[in-house]
């Protein structure tokens, strides 16, 4: 049973890395890809065979990053200051990124709907940058981290009350395969 479970997790990891948009950083030679070689679809087949250690699949997989470590941190209303809980999550993210040097990350900043559109884009940029700066302070090379803000345009929780707003005020670290060519 364990074997089948492992296989399905692997397949999921493969599917995930296949859809992480390898062209995410654009095709331009902006230096981001220079230290990246051959990452991507093969990442799930780590030769170490260290699969299933925590029941969440390969700890080197983007899926493990998103689910076990936690790919997002949340913010207070109209704030971009990191909470202690956020810092703990980001510590784990930094550790993972330092171990899995084949990956890049795009940090997506988001806002809740209680704000004007353009201000929220700027606020999301501030949140994404707060997460990025923290990861850099923990040793992740800045060249592997980009930011983007979606403002309030990409809510994950759709109700219009505090519980949903709290989930939407977030910075999400999206692991991207580094293969640029």
């Amino acid at each position: 049973m364990n074997k089948y479970f492992t296989v399905s997790i692997l397949a999921a990891a493969l599917a995930l890395s296949a859809c992480t948009r390898p062209d995410r950083f654009g095709s331009g030679a902006d230096g981001l890809g220079s230290d990246i070689a051959g990452a991507g679809a093969g990442a799930g087949f780590d030769q170490s065979g260290a699969i299933g250690q925590s029941g969440l699949g390969n700890p080197d997989s983007p899926e493990y990053f998103a689910q076990a470590i936690g790919d997002r941190v949340l913010f207070q209303i109209d704030q971009s200051t990191l909470t202690s809980e956020a810092m703990a999550t980001l510590d784990g993210q930094a550790q993972w990124l330092m171990t899995n040097t084949d990956y890049l990350a795009v940090i997506e900043g988001h806002a809740d709907e209680q704000g004007t559109r353009e201000y929220n884009v700027a606020l999301g940029a501030r949140r994404a940058n707060a997460a990025r700066e923290y990861l850099i302070s923990r040793g992740v090379p800045s060249s592997r981290l980009r930011t983007i803000s979606y403002g309030k345009e990409r809510p994950i929780a759709t109700c219009s009350d505090a519980s949903c707003y709290a989930q939407n005020r977030r910075a999400v670290t999206v692991i991207a395969a580094g293969a640029l060519s």
């Binding site: 971009s80 353009e118 884009v121 700027a122 940029a125 501030r126 949140r127 994404a128 940058n129 707060a130 700066e133 980009r146 930011t147 983007i148 803000s149």
Partner: peptide, 26 residues
């Protein structure tokens, strides 16, 4: 910059005023 947004034309239509975010600053 990391992001460019919030554009508007100048009054003669020959220029754009807009915002750029870099390092969290807009």
């Amino acid at each position: 910059g990391e992001m460019a947004f919030s554009p508007r034309f100048s009054k003669d239509g020959g220029a754009v005023i807009y915002s750029v975010s870099t390092g969290g600053n807009t």
